[in-house]
Amino acid sequence: MFTYALGRAGQNAEQILQGFDGTLQLDGYTGYNRLTRPSRKGGGPVTVAHCWAHARRKLKEVFDRDGSEIAAEGLRRIAELYRIEGEIRGMGPGQRLSARQARTAPLVTSFGEWLQNQRCRISSKSRLGEKLTNIHRQWDGLQTFLRDGRVEIDSNAVENLIRPIALTRKNALFAGRDEGGRI
């Protein structure tokens, strides 16, 4: 679904998703946090499924810039999750859930322990420390795919589908009217 709003504010998402109760796969944008509140207007709290590709991207940025061994280790660990996802792609939700619980969950638990250890060693004000803290903030949502076989490990498929819409909208900004985004 693509719905235009004047901005990316959480109140816009709350309005668009009024009456929705379920799981929402998204990037780590904090504006959506209001959707998880029990007191959310227009419905109960939404379950968030955060995107492992966004978590990976944070580590990749640090690795590409600094060559960090810690970032490289995080990337290696995430690659293992994606290797398993590649093997179970196309299976039904029940089969994916079983495979994830047996094979992926221990790796995610290990990643969580590794993440905590690295956060204790590294200044939270450093570039890597900021990225690790960001991943830590999304930790619960990063584990949602382990509890529901319908949920993807990342939001890449959706982002790839809406990219042409977003690029067209961005390219048409010179037109000067918000109504153009609603078409």
Results as ranks from 00 to 15, higher is better:
Ile16Leu: 15
Gly92Lys: 09
Gly22Leu: 08
Ala53Gly: 03
Tyr32Gly: 01
Gly92Ala: 13
Glu80Arg: 12
Leu81Pro: 01
Thr23Pro: 06
Leu81Ala: 03
Glu87Tyr: 08
Val62Thr: 12
Glu61Cys: 03
Ser68Arg: 14
Val62Cys: 06
Leu26Asn: 00
Cys51His: 05
Arg100Leu: 00
Thr47Arg: 15
Leu24His: 03
Gly86Thr: 08
Tyr32Asp: 07
Thr23Lys: 04
Thr36Met: 13
Met91Ile: 00
Gly28Tyr: 05
Gly74Leu: 02
Asp21Gln: 12
Pro106Trp: 01
His50Phe: 04
Leu97Val: 04
Glu80Ala: 15
Gln11Ile: 09
Phe63Gln: 06
Leu81Phe: 08
Gln18Phe: 10
Gln101Asp: 09
Gly112Asp: 11
Gly43Asn: 13
Leu24Pro: 10
Gln18Cys: 14
Glu80Leu: 13
Lys58Met: 11
Gly86Glu: 00
Ala53Lys: 06
His50Ala: 08
Gln25Thr: 08
Gly10Glu: 03
Glu73Met: 06
Leu35His: 09
Gln25Ala: 14
Phe20Arg: 09
Gly42Leu: 14
Leu26Thr: 03
Ile84Arg: 10
Lys41Asp: 05
Arg76Gly: 00
Arg103Gly: 11
Val48Trp: 03
Ile88Tyr: 02
Gln18Ile: 01
Ala13Gly: 11
Asn12Phe: 14
Phe63Asn: 08
Gly22Asp: 06
Thr109Ile: 05
Gly19Arg: 01
Asp64Met: 03
Ala99Phe: 05
Gly19Ile: 03
Lys58Gln: 10
Tyr82His: 02
Ala79Asp: 15
Gly67Leu: 02
Arg57Ile: 09
Lys60Thr: 00
Arg57Ala: 01
Ala105Val: 04
Arg89Cys: 08
Ile70Val: 15
Ala13Cys: 10
Leu75Ile: 14
Ala102Lys: 13
Ile78Ala: 03
Cys51Met: 02
Arg37Phe: 07
Arg76Trp: 02
Glu61Trp: 07
Gly86Lys: 02
Cys51Leu: 14
Ala72Cys: 03
Thr109Val: 12
Asp27Ser: 07
Gly31Arg: 00
Gln11Asn: 12
Arg40Met: 07
Gly19Lys: 11
Thr47Asp: 11
Asp66Val: 13
